[in-house]
Write a protein that binds this DNA or RNA. Sequence first.
DNA 1: ACCCAGGGTCATA
DNA 2: TATGACCATGGG
Length: 221
Amino acid sequence: MIESIAEVYDKLKLHYPPQRWWPGESQFEVMVGAVLTQNTAWRNVEKALDGLRSAGCLSLERIHQLLAADLALLIRPAGYYNLKARRLHNLCHFLLANGGVDVLGEWPTEQLRRGLLGINGVGPETADDILLYAFRREVFVVDTYTQRLFSRIGITAGRHDYEALRRRVEREISGGAPEFAQFHALIVEHAKMICRKSPLCNECPLQLECRHGVAIASSTH
DNA sequence: ACCCAGGGTCATA
DNA sequence: TATGACCATGGG
C-alpha cells in the first residue's frame, strides 16, 4: 500500500527514465502550448504550434496583431480553435498590458498566479503550467491524471480540491521546480503506459494505482 | 462508430 | 456548491 506522495514519486523514478518535458523555444511558446493543450492531445497541439511557427506567427506581437478568425485558422488542429483563438488573445493582452514577459518574470509567484487566473480562459492547471514551465516557479501542476492517480491510490478522498492537493504535493516533495516538473511528467508518462498496455489493475507496471481490482486508466472502464 | 485527449466558462437550480 | 452544455480536431 502506498502511503505517501514521495513514495509515489520514488516508484515512478525507478520505473521510468527521466522525462524531458515541455520543450519550447521560448517562454511565450510554452504559454501558447499551455492554452492549446486544454483537453487536447499534445500531438494536435504540436501541429498547431508548427502551423504558427511556419507562418512566422509564434510570437507575442504577431499573435496579438492577428485577427481572431485568422488565428483560429492557424491553430485549427488543436481543436476548439475559435475558443482558443480568443483565449490566446486574452493571454497576449495580459502580457502586453503588464509590460511583457520579462517584466512579469519579476513578479512574486502568488501575484503572478492571481494575474494569470484573471485571464478569461486560464484556469488553475493552465496557470500552473505557465508558472512551472514558462517561469520556473516552485508550483506543482495538478492535472486530471494526477487527480485520478492519487484518488485511486487512496491518497486523496476522491474530491476535486485542486488547491489542497497542489499544496500538499508542494509540501511533501522537496527539490523545487525541477522536481515538480519531473514528477508531473512521470505521472503523465505512467498514465499513457497503463492506458495503452495494461488497463487492468493486475497488469499495471508499478502495482501503483491498484485498488479493488479497478482499472485506473480511464474513468469509464 | 465510438471514446477521449496534459480544461475552462457560462447558464441554471 | 454543483451539475450540464458547450467548445472541435485527430488518433486509437
